[in-house]
Design a binder for these strands. Structure first.
Lengths: 300, 300
DNA sequence: AGAGGTTACGGGCAGCGTAAGGATC
DNA sequence: GATCCTTACGCTGCCCGTAACCTCT
């Protein structure tokens, strides 16, 4: 039994190397675990060489396996280049598991999806909305492929494309004129904001402490549109993205006020694992960046 | 219909590009022509791109095809590197169509084959013995993979490994003492040598003309051992490789004589097509070179 | 017992060869 | 009609998934 080198075998091999196990690789490849065993075994037979030492509780690269891994990465890179330079993008198939923060959903997610779909009509896109800290974990656990979340992820394995900052503004109900003479007193009302465990929440809390001392009450919400509704009803105020508030303002439902300071703008990034190198992910992140910028431009 | 990139498809593609046609590629790949059509079509479908313009009497690369060709060569090169650095040589299968001159057959072909077999026991070796000019044509027509023949082949497409020179010596029958006082007179006897259309024949003829004028009679033979037998029988003399003559000399059947000059030594080379790059061929040529040197050493 | 990888086996499909079918000179 | 490549079709064999098995902790 001896056949030729095969890219699927190499991909399986590399996935096993990266994830350190046949089962995990099978998971990532969308195969059963015996199928991975078969692929590796066939590859080993083709080469006439053992690639892994099967130890209890995992596998270890042999010396030959290590050499092959270097070449395997080049094979994969070359495949990526072919996909980038030769393939018709409309023919590119695959899954893209997207993770996005709620802010992005409200801002430009539909535009982003539309653009992505225009470029890769054959791509299956899966959307997960969650708070950034969870998205981060999901990305590192390879449960999603691309995350649009707060701040760059400081991990050597992650590539971050920084997106334009999202300015926040203070909003109150249009009808609430109670503290017009001294806008900072609006902050004595309940303050709605991002969910606990989010960076905006923590930052806002520390800034409030700095500006007001302990005299504030903060109500986190996992839904931005809920925040806007709550502000509109006059129950309280909120520091929320200006790009989202504009619509409510122009409809005369809420309005900005200036207590003399504003929370820092939100820094989003489109983040993905750099390994394995994927031109599709790089392009998708670039599209996210372009979409975010054009969304800003439209709103100015 | 959409599958993944496949090395066999790429190999087929590259072969079509190199040979400029599906049929010729099929020939080289050991496939039927429709099989090549299928491979190319599948590749085109995978990429969602036309690779060839089908013109009457052949095919032409499209723009995309040209880009792919560059990457395809890198894929092939990478496969070669894996074969060189990772594969167990004893597992390397394939055909090696060898072309050799008769002189080499008599000198070190068996040693060469033995060495080759030791390194690549799974390799199928096919031996063709012919005169150099024919070997040259066969190589350029891709009818053989490696030729061991006279002189380098001056074609940009051919890689030549130069082998140690083969010295010639003049031989006469041991029993023939007729011209011992004036050895050059042995050349008045019939002179046996390499076949017509060979370089040694032509060179010897012109050298004889220079030294003796038209007073000689040259009898070409396609068999070297026939030449030795003819010399031994006393029918004539011959300029033949000293490494081959030694045995007959030590057995007291023939002996050297010195008419005052000798034909130029024979320059052999191990030659093969540089494209597609094949580590196996490079190694085989290197083994030929090593075998030739060790043969010389043994004879000294 | 559970988490890892391997072996056994049946079934589906990719890709081969044969044979027939254009197209172009 | 000769020389290309393409299409049609039956068949083989590869490789997948299911399921049972092995081997460590």
């Amino acid at each position: 039994m001896n056949t030729r080198l095969n890219l699927e075998q190499i991909r399986a091999f590399l996935t096993v190397v990266r994830l350190g196990g046949f089962s995990k690789a099978a998971d990532e490849l969308g195969l059963t675990q015996p199928a991975v065993t078969t692929r590796i075994k066939n590859l080993e037979n083709t080469l006439g060489v053992e690639l892994f030492e099967r130890t209890s509780g995992g596998v270890l690269l042999t010396k030959r396996g290590d050499i092959l891994a270097r070449y395997a990465k080049q094979f994969e890179q070359l495949s990526e280049l072919v996909q980038r330079d030769v393939m018709d993008p409309s023919g590119i198939e695959g899954h893209l598991r997207l993770g996005v923060s709620e802010t992005i959903v409200q801002c430009w997610l539909p535009l982003f999806i539309e653009e992505l779909y225009r470029m890769y009509p054959a791509l299956e896109i899966e959307i997960n909305v969650d708070i950034s800290v969870n998205l981060r974990t999901m990305l590192l656990d390879r449960e999603i492929d691309l995350a649009v979340l707060l701040g760059p992820i400081s991990e050597y394995s992650v590539d971050n494309v920084e997106l334009p900052e999202v300015d926040l503004a203070w909003y109150r109900a249009e009808s609430d004129q109670s503290s017009n003479d001294q806008p900072s007193r609006y902050l004595e009302k309940p303050i709605f904001t991002y969910a606990r465990n989010t960076r905006p929440f923590r930052e806002l809390r520390s800034e409030l402490l700095e500006h007001l001392g302990p005299n504030y009450s903060l109500f986190p919400s996992s839904s931005l549109s809920a925040c806007f509704r709550l502000v509109e009803s006059g129950l309280g105020v909120a520091a929320l993205p200006r790009v989202l508030g504009q619509r409510f303002v122009s409809e005369g439902r809420i309005c900005e006020f200036d207590p003399g300071w504003r929370p820092n703008p939100l820094k989003f990034s489109a983040s993905f694992l750099g390994e394995p190198k994927s031109h599709l992910l790089e392009t998708a992140a670039a599209i996210a960046s372009a979409t975010a910028r054009s969304f800003d431009d439209k709103k100015l």
